[in-house]
Computed example of a mutant assay.
Amino acid sequence: MKLIIDFGNTFTKLAVFRQDIIVKQFQYKDLNVSDISAVIDMYPQIRAVIVSAVINYPEEITQFLIERFDFIELGVNTPIPIINKYKSPETLGKDRIAAVVAAAELYPNKNVLVIDAGTCITYDLINEKREYYGGSISPGINMRLKAMHEFTGNLPYVEAKKVDFLIGSTTEESILSGVYNGLINEIDGIIGSYKENYENLTVILGGGDYIYFDKRLKNNIFALPNIVMIGLNVILKFNDSKK
């Protein structure tokens, strides 16, 4: 069994894999060694661990894992089963690279656009030759709602939720309509632009906020909320096979 740890901007997610199947998932606001120990006690068959982090995390976690497991921390020099042609790989988010690795594994020999809806919304394409050049990054739904409150004098902060109206009849409804409907049109528009340039495009929508968008998009998509965890598992397996 394998343990996947993904330190994200908002939460840290853990997943226990048996082969290619997720057995159990956990989510933490502030992960510590005790939390990891509890998971290991539940699944003593864990033999290998991969960590991906877009934030700094406690060094004691690294030491704890190194002492007990075959350990990989995903970095710029970690071998991956795709061709990375990103011009600044040292600044590339680990979640983005993991997501396209998963896409290449799940949909081989296809052009795949991966949309990861989280704190930010990332759009990344991996082509049929398993080549990755990059994509784009946009503010996520909660970031937009917080920015409208923090960078204005009077607009309130509104909790994110799905809406089915276009015209808001209150300030709160107007904010939700603008952010939610704006994002729907952004995502559909970007998918359309990629389809004009890449034939037979497969589109994957993942990330913690995918539920806000998957039923409203005009384009056909495959909803896969665990796309990053799947990609990290693929990378861990790939490195195990090279030993």
Rank of each mutant, 00 (worst) to 15 (best):
E128N: 11
V112A: 04
R68K: 14
V49Q: 01
T171I: 10
R18Q: 15
D188T: 11
M143T: 11
K24T: 12
N200W: 13
E73R: 14
F11M: 11
G168F: 05
G206N: 10
M143H: 00
S169E: 15
L125N: 04
G168D: 03
D70E: 10
N200C: 11
I97M: 06
K146M: 08
I4P: 00
T91K: 13
E159C: 10
I55R: 12
G192M: 10
A102Y: 01
Y198N: 12
N109L: 11
F7S: 04
L65E: 01
A223F: 01
L201Q: 13
K85H: 14
N154A: 14
S136E: 04
G182A: 08
G140L: 00
S177M: 06
L106Q: 05
I97D: 02
N181I: 04
L106Y: 11
D188K: 09
V228K: 09
E128T: 07
N142A: 04
D188N: 15
G208Y: 10
V76Y: 04
Y123P: 00
Y180M: 08
L74C: 07
L183H: 00
D6E: 10
L166K: 08
G231K: 00
G189M: 11
M42S: 15
K87W: 08
N220V: 13
L113E: 02
S169W: 07
L125H: 02
F69D: 04
L232V: 09
P81Y: 00
D95P: 01
L3P: 02
A38G: 12
V114D: 01
R144Q: 09
G207E: 06
N56A: 09
V163L: 00
V158Q: 05
K24G: 08
L205R: 05
R130A: 12
K146Q: 12
F11A: 09
P139I: 02
L224F: 12
I190G: 08
T78V: 01
V33Y: 08
D70T: 11
E128K: 14
E60D: 14
G207P: 07
E67F: 05
L224C: 13
I61Y: 00
E67Q: 15
K13S: 03
Q19M: 12
